[in-house]
Design a protein around this nucleic acid. Structure first.
Length: 519
RNA sequence: GGCCCCAUCGUCUAGAGGCCAAGGACACCACCCUCUCAAGGUGGAGACACGGGUUCGAAUCCCGUUGGGGCUGCCA
């Protein structure tokens, strides 16, 4: 690609938490910028003051930091540019592109009820109203002709101008509206590529009209129209645009559940695009070097958590033991130096931290200390880092999210294990359970306390009772861990220690003896 | 209703006229491995929405149909 270095922007509106769809849009912008040696700009579109809150802005910033997408410029706040927007409005008004309109929404609806063409009917177009309070400013859309969007993803998309209504550029209170502020800001920041969701495609011809109008009044000089790239929507299982109300779309949800930033980023990149070759799990360097807007798929993509989980599991298993232990800390020991929000990602992809870019400007919230919303089930003082580290390799192979770690190791740190009723019922129903537990208590009391020996002892115990190891270990597992599934039993026993093991076997035996045999 | 977009296994996708009796990944099924559960290994089932063209030849190009979706706010 030739010409000036690309300048792209991600322009979210701070209306709540960070949406996975926004994350995907941001990622594609970021990938494109990194690849082209361009500039990635963050612009907060907060022109609607009533729908903007500071904490939502910091949510955007920290989510982007988590995914390793630091902006090169910004965040810029659209609300801070009101004067500039008014200036551009004046220029357009003076150029005759705008007209004042005092129609109420109700009046328009009333008037156009039976019209073939919906939307505003141009009622005020030739009334020659002066600007003033209570009067919105509308753009005089040409009656004839076609506006074509040259889209890098979809090719040329044509919009008959006659199908566009005279849209509002400035509210009756003087506030600029989205399309208008958006275009002015893109012009002023010399954006070369507008990469955003397909839902914005229908408003693009309006933006183009505005762009050329601003050119013709030389507002800020003549500016080259950016290239556009409209990304396919992310949809739910019903193939509808992801909705905040009913779909789990908050990126924070996934972070809280223990998805790694690298996995999330890799998965997001797979939505509407795929790296060359048969490999889908790829390093960010590959993402950056092979990403092409022209290769973006046209059809909407379903956000498939199953696949995300799988990828996450792969990334977790790939971690070094140290990295896994550290990444798990927020879930197992939230007080022990809970890392900042960016830390898990930094630990996993250290190269990420070398990405250049100015430090966030004043007003940008620094990444805050972060922890998952739920604490581990054991008393914090009973957590033993050394014990966790010993069992960690077995856990690492078995979890698919970090959020699953506590449930896998809770028996080590709880005073009494949490007994799963269904698993316990199977023990009660097992006629051999009592003799297995008794024999285990006997053998475990005397043998050397290492996994291999415990393994042999248990096998021998089974032989003695005519049971395969898989049958013999079952009651012991439930007695010790409370569950029928978990990390390898003998390693678990080794870490737990002889005393606690014997105590829990005795407790299980007691419970079996109680009249009901149930919990 | 109007404008616009889209259409390959259940899902994400590869596929730019012959290399495709359509490849990969997730999910699913079976087997192997195995102290449970995972992981891993091997194998299996599974798709070009439909109808017309164009062409020697179409998943790939064109038209139509059907089906989905987006937009249609003085929200962004």
């Amino acid at each position: 690609m030739t010409g000036p270095q690309p300048r792209v922007r991600f322009a979210p509106s701070p209306t709540g938490y960070f949406h996975v769809g926004s994350a995907r849009t941001s990622l594609f912008n970021w990938l494109f910028a990194r690849q082209q040696g361009g500039t990635f700009i963050l612009r907060i579109e907060d022109t609607d003051a009533e729908r903007s809150r500071p904490e939502w802005v910091s949510g955007i910033l920290s989510a982007m930091a988590w995914l390793g997408m630091e902006p090169d410029e910004g965040p810029f706040f659209q609300s801070a540019r009101a004067d500039r927007h008014r200036e551009a409005i004046d220029a357009l008004w003076n150029g005759g592109f705008l007209y004042a309109c005092d129609c109420t929404r109700e009046a328009v609806i009333e008037r156009t009820r039976n019209n073939a063409v919906p939307g505003y009917d141009g009622f005020c177009r030739d009334r020659g109203l002066e600007r003033g309070p209570g009067r919105a400013l509308r753009f005089r859309v040409p009656d004839e002709g076609t506006t074509v969007v040259h889209d890098l993803v979809r090719g040329d998309v044509e919009f008959p101008n006659a199908s566009m209504e005279d849209f509002v550029c400035a509210k009756s209170n003087g506030q600029p509206l989205f399309v208008f502020a958006n275009v002015v800001d893109d012009r002023d920041s010399a954006i070369t590529h507008v990469i955003r969701g397909e839902d914005l495609l229908p408003s693009t011809p309006k933006g183009i009209l505005l762009w050329h109008a601003l050119d013709s009044v030389a507002d800020g000089g003549i500016r080259a129209l950016p290239r556009f790239a409209h990304l396919p929507m992310l949809v739910n299982e019903r193939r509808q645009k992801l909705s905040k109300r009913r779909d789990p779309v908050a990126l924070e949800l996934y972070r809280d559940a223990g998805y790694l930033a690298v996995a999330m980023r890799n998965y997001l990149a797979l939505l509407g695009w795929s790296p060359p070759g048969d490999q889908e799990k790829v390093d960010v360097e590959v993402l950056i070097s092979t990403f092409r807007l022209e290769d973006v798929h046209h059809a909407p993509a379903f956000f498939d958590v199953q696949k995300l989980r799988h990828l996450n599991g792969e990334y977790i298993r790939e971690l070094s033991l140290d990295a896994f232990v550290e990444a798990s800390l927020p879930w197992v020991a939230p007080d022990q130096g809970a890392p900042s929000i960016a830390a898990p990602q930094a630990a996993i992809a250290p190269r990420e931290t070398t990405s250049s870019g100015p430090t966030p400007p004043p007003g940008a919230a620094a990444p805050t200390a972060w922890r998952p919303p739920t604490d581990p089930p054991w008393p914090r003082e009973r957590f033993d880092p050394a014990a966790f580290r010993r069992i960690a390799p077995a856990v690492q192979e078995r979890v698919t999210t970090l959020g699953e770690v506590p449930a896998m190791i809770d028996f080590l740190f709880l005073v009494d294990p949490i007994i799963d009723p269904v698993s316990w019922e199977k023990v009660v129903a097992d006629p051999n359970a009592r003799s297995v537990l008794s024999a285990a208590a006997e053998r475990y009391a005397a043998c050397e306390w290492v996994a291999a020996v415990l393994h042999d002892e248990t096998r021998a115990l089974g032989d003695q009772l005519g049971l395969k190891l898989n049958k013999a270990q079952a009651p012991i597992r439930v007695a010790i861990t409370g569950r029928g599934v978990g990390p390898p039993l003998f390693e678990s026993l080794e870490v737990l220690g002889r005393d606690v093991t014997l105590q829990r076997i005795r407790q299980a035996l007691d419970r079996l003896s109680s009249s009901s045999g149930t919990l």
